[in-house]
């Protein structure tokens, strides 16, 4: 497994028009499969395109599968990260549109996990013509509880997560040692990183977590004009069933499918069920 660990350099701006080739490199775009119809898979917070590894093979025979990493995640170009641009989900939606434009994609089937569900909603509102169908795995328009709304978390829960992440994101010794010693850019650290899967730059992960968990896209749901599917796990702490129902209720043309699964990542823990549900929809 390829692993990378790069110390974060903040405040790189990439507002300029970026040529196609560099978009493909910037977002580490990978195209697999032989089909005509394009399936675009967008990873959620905390991982990268490798999280799709248990289900993509099921589609490459019939579809052209496009995988990518958001800027700041996976093997994207970290130097393209801007703490200003990526301070809202709109920045990530732009990544999505950039990839579509770079590959001249139209009428794609979009599969978005977790926060990517809302990123997909935002992108499809902006450019509906790019999208044919949208599939959301564990979507949530808002994680925080609100008046007449159950997101699943109170503010203090999220603060404890951020604190938790600050001290624990990639394993205790790898996180705490640099935090205490103050040498996070010691290059050899990466080689011994304990839990290297989906390792994202800690600074980016920290901001991405805040953007994700503090976003509120409930008002955007009604604007979506593209047909969509919500895959809701029966036992998901992150996106409880009530949230899935809220999404289904507020999205025009949305179908809700319940997966008998525990957790927030059925495409990893229950790949077969997930594949089947997607196939049934498309």
């Amino acid at each position: 497994m390829v692993f990378y660990y790069v110390y974060f350099h903040p405040a790189h701006s990439c507002n300029q028009l970026t040529p196609m080739k560099s978009i493909l490199e910037r977002n580490n775009v990978n195209v697999l499969g032989d089909g005509e119809q394009v399936m675009l898979f967008a990873h959620g917070f905390g991982c990268d395109q490798r999280s799709w590894q248990f289900i993509v093979n099921a589609f490459t025979a019939d579809y052209k599968v496009v995988l990518f990493d958001y800027v700041g995640s996976g093997e994207s170009d970290l130097s393209a990260y801007s703490s200003i641009k990526y301070d809202s989900l709109d920045g990530y939606a732009q990544d999505l549109l950039d990839v579509c434009e770079a590959l001249s994609l139209n009428q794609v089937i979009f599969v978005g996990h977790s926060v990517s569900a809302m990123i997909g909603v935002l992108a499809a509102i902006q450019k509906p013509e790019y999208f044919k169908k949208l599939i959301f795995i564990g979507p949530s328009p808002r994680y925080l509880n609100d008046e007449n709304y159950t997101g699943g978390f109170d503010r203090k829960d999220l603060e404890s997560l951020f604190e938790f992440m600050d001290s624990n994101y990639l394993g205790w010794s790898n996180t705490m040692a640099p935090a205490i010693m103050g040498n996070p850019d010691r290059p050899e650290l990466g080689d011994f990183l304990t839990n290297s899967f989906c390792a994202t730059d800690p600074e980016v992960a920290r901001q991405f977590a805040r953007v994700t968990f503090f976003s509120d896209n409930r008002a955007d749901l009604g604007k979506l004009q593209v047909e969509s599917l919500t895959l809701q796990c029966t036992d998901d702490v992150i996106a409880p069933q009530a949230v899935g129902e809220f999404v289904q209720l507020h999205l025009p043309q949305n179908k809700l499918v319940l997966l008998e699964a525990t957790g927030h990542c059925p495409h990893i823990s229950e790949p077969e069920k997930t594949i089947q549900a997607i196939r049934d929809f498309i």
Partner: peptide, 8 residues
């Protein structure tokens, strides 16, 4: 917070 980490 731990639960989110555990899940994600």
């Amino acid at each position: 917070g731990g639960q989110i980490h555990y899940e994600m």
